[in-house]
């Protein structure tokens, strides 16, 4: 198990664990990589776990973003996140702030697999391609200039 070997190198205590059957080092090749990289997380011991890497095939494409705006309505995203994704029953996605990380792969994960605080998994109805189209739209939204202050002092 690749990740087990890397952690073992980083931390002596885990090196000890790795010698036991608790870390399944006897089945290295078949074990699937755990999901995807969570770039915004803090990695213990500065050691980032190896994982699959996801890449948005439409990154930055304006036409895809426009199609994503339509998908945002047709998949009923606006019913919770509001028209223009400015927030309603669910958080704003247009404020440049992201509960589960702002990287494209983390936003992909939020839509495709869902999130535990009420975000349904849309991967089953949208597929990976549809999800990337939505990600491209959300990342195209302009982030407001004044990001921290609600009212100007007169």
């Amino acid at each position: 198990m690749k990740s087990g070997h890397k952690l073992a190198a980083a931390l002596p205590i885990l090196a000890l664990l790795a010698t036991t059957s608790y870390v399944r080092s006897e089945t290295p090749a078949e074990a699937p990589l755990p999901a995807i990289q969570p770039p915004s997380h803090i990695a213990a011991g500065h050691s980032t776990p190896p994982a699959g890497v996801l890449t948005n095939p439409y990154k930055g494409d304006a036409d895809t973003a426009a199609a994503g705006a339509e998908a945002f309505a047709s998949m009923n995203c606006d019913g919770c996140h509001g028209g223009g994704a400015t927030g309603f029953a669910a958080p704003s996605l247009a404020d440049g702030r992201w509960r589960y990380g702002d990287s494209e792969e983390e936003i992909f994960q939020s839509i495709y697999y869902g999130r535990p605080k009420g975000m349904p998994a849309f991967g089953g109805v949208m597929g990976a391609d549809g999800t990337w189209i939505l990600v491209t739209y959300l990342k195209s939204l302009p982030v407001p200039d004044n990001k921290t202050q609600s009212w100007e002092t007169p």
Binding site: G87, P91, S92, R97, S150
Partner: peptide, 23 residues
């Protein structure tokens, strides 16, 4: 609009028909 403070990842502009409620 902005009456929420407990979620730093949810920042909204003031309500358009009830602008001052968040004050």
């Amino acid at each position: 609009g902005d009456v929420v403070s407990g979620d730093q990842t949810d920042v909204r502009p003031p309500s358009d028909f009830m602008k001052d409620i968040g004050r």
